[in-house]
């Protein structure tokens, strides 16, 4: 029955960054480190590194919640094909 048991793994659905149409681009200069984007990222793909945010593009699905919640407009959603 070992095949019925799963263990914690990042990327259980693979590199979900491939799902992305829009990519969140983060502008550190506009950021006030409120961490709302970190709290509200549904994918848990935003990390806080040394008090600053860092987006894990391997898994970020590009939903855009972070850009919407950011009061400082420090995250902009840009089409992947325009990058």
């Amino acid at each position: 029955m070992e095949c019925m048991i799963a263990r914690p793994s990042k990327g259980s659905a693979g590199k979900t960054g491939l799902w992305r149409t829009f990519k969140p681009i983060y502008d550190e200069n506009k950021c006030n480190n409120c961490l709302l984007c970190w709290l509200y990222c549904p994918e848990n793909a935003i990390d806080v590194v040394d008090g600053k945010i860092s987006i894990d593009y391997d898994y970020c699905k590009g939903c855009g919640v972070c850009a919407k919640i950011c009061a400082k407009k420090a995250i902009e959603m840009v089409r992947e094909d325009e990058l």
């Binding site: 029955m1 095949c3 019925m4 048991i5 799963a6 263990r7 914690p8």
Partner: peptide, 17 residues
């Protein structure tokens, strides 16, 4: 003890089981 039991898996798992 973070195991998950009984979730989605391969079709073969049912046959093996």
């Amino acid at each position: 003890n973070p195991i998950t039991v009984g979730g989605l898996t391969t079709n073969e798992c049912t046959m093996i089981l």
